[in-house]
Amino acid sequence: MKKVYVAMAMLLVLGACSEKKKLPILGNRAAVERLIDGKLQIDTLYATVADFSLTNQDGKTITQETVKGKIYIADFFFASCPTICPIMKKQMIRVFEKYKGDTGILFLSHTIDPEHDTIALLKDYATRLGSDGTQWMFLTGEREQIYELAEKGYYATALPDSLEPGGYVHSGGFILVDGQRRVRGIYNGTDEKEVDQLMLDMDLLKNEQ
């Protein structure tokens, strides 16, 4: 009988802890005044990823509507990248394998070299990484839009640079976004330990939603 109490106490403690631990919301926030039922209320407005319209590896248009209410991970890459992309993709495969089939979670890999990475190439790339393209998508679009999205939306940098091998510098970040399009974490996608943390945080976020 005593054991049961101990177990219950432990559960309570555990429950209390997990309740407290919440992921931060990244980015600038602003206070806005709202008139609700004639009363003035102050609300915090969190930074969110801006609306977007991109094309996936099947030629389908992907917008903010596609990710509505879903947790997703965004990253940036290009197919001919000699340096960190293969390492990132190896790590992304781990995360993808873990959440495969979870309809609340999506993966968006954005090419930063849309001229070279055609839709057909992205399709082949996706298949070769073991994705059928529904849960883990490979996106292309207007160069300007992708770079703007990377920098302002996801705080990742993606700039052409002819000095870097492959011609691009880019952050190896995996960006965790919640169902309200708020960035909740950025993880180094080349670091196995940080990617482990990402998966723990994804579980936290799933419980929150």
Binding site: K90, T127, R128
Partner: peptide
């Protein structure tokens, strides 16, 4: 030397 999925 194991490569990467079907990519490398």
């Amino acid at each position: 030397g194991s490569g990467l999925a079907q990519l490398i």
